[in-house]
């Protein structure tokens, strides 16, 4: 198992957002994570990537216990995430948004521009080429010199995916990549994810509410409800499972009652 979550718990005051949740993501899959609003999906991502500290439980990534590690160390191990609401670097160009990403850049050390200017320049050149290739892959190349804040909602989602790609990760956690993306772009986005998984062997673990996307793309699908894993199965199994229906409907009735 590439990623394994064991009995993870997270409390927000009196509210238990993640409740003894255990699940596993197999290498080379596109694993879906679905569940009603407030099920704790985003919180789970934040726990895995070290943005929140769990109250108990463990996270194992590629055979190392990474529980409670700061986010940037996980990134360097090859685990990359995107955000539900895009968090682009607004006052930077699309190009810079991507060039920033790769870890261990020589020029990020403060003295390198003086001590090894040649190496910094060389690295920047390679980085530039890689960025251009990535932007071409996600079809944003025409926007490379635009401020990231000027991108549309869907384009920002693509930017987030492109940023994750720049890291050459082994696993990407996507939080609702399809939210607010128009159907045409969504088709493209799904294509990109499939290709990245097939060609580069990147594992995807993605939260999504769009059932068409989940059904077409993900296998297996994990269902979360009230902080716990409810079930796991193929898209078809999930679709026909009574517990899943109840979870979604129950959530809606509960919301309607209030």
């Amino acid at each position: 198992m590439q990623l394994s979550v064991q009995n993870l718990v997270k409390d927000f005051g009196g509210l238990r957002a993640v409740d003894r949740c255990s699940l596993e993501v197999r290498e080379g899959t596109i694993t879906g994570l679905i569940g009603p609003n407030g099920a704790g999906k985003t919180t789970l991502f934040n726990l895995i990537t070290g943005f929140y500290k769990s109250d108990s439980g463990r996270v194992i990534f590629e055979d190392t216990d990474v529980t409670g590690r700061p986010p940037y160390t996980l990134f360097r191990q090859g685990l990359c995430r995107t955000f539900q609401i895009p968090r682009e670097f607004k006052e930077m160009t699309v190009l810079e948004n991507l060039m920033l990403v790769p870890a261990g850049q020589c020029g990020e050390r403060i003295f390198s521009p003086w001590l090894q200017p040649g190496r910094v320049k060389q690295e920047e050149r390679e980085l530039f080429d890689k960025t251009i290739a990535t932007l071409e892959f996600v079809n944003l190349i025409h926007l490379k010199d635009e401020y990231a804040r000027n991108l549309s909602g869907g384009q920002k989602k693509l930017l987030e995916l492109a940023r994750a790609m720049m890291a050459d990760p082994t696993m990407i956690l996507l939080d609702e990549p399809g939210a607010g993306v128009n159907p045409t772009l969504l088709k493209k986005l799904m294509g990109y994810i499939e290709r990245l998984c097939a060609d580069r062997g990147i594992t995807f673990f993605l939260i999504e509410h769009d059932m068409d996307l989940v059904m077409a793309l993900c296998n297996p699908v994990i269902v979360m409800s009230e902080g716990k894993k409810l079930m796991e199965g193929t898209p078809n199994e999930v679709r026909s499972d009574q517990r899943v229906l109840d979870a979604y409907l129950g959530g809606q009735y509960a919301a309607a009652d209030r």
Partner: peptide, 8 residues
């Protein structure tokens, strides 16, 4: 936070 998520 985004910078942190991107390994900085």
């Amino acid at each position: 936070d985004a910078a942190l998520a991107l390994g900085k």
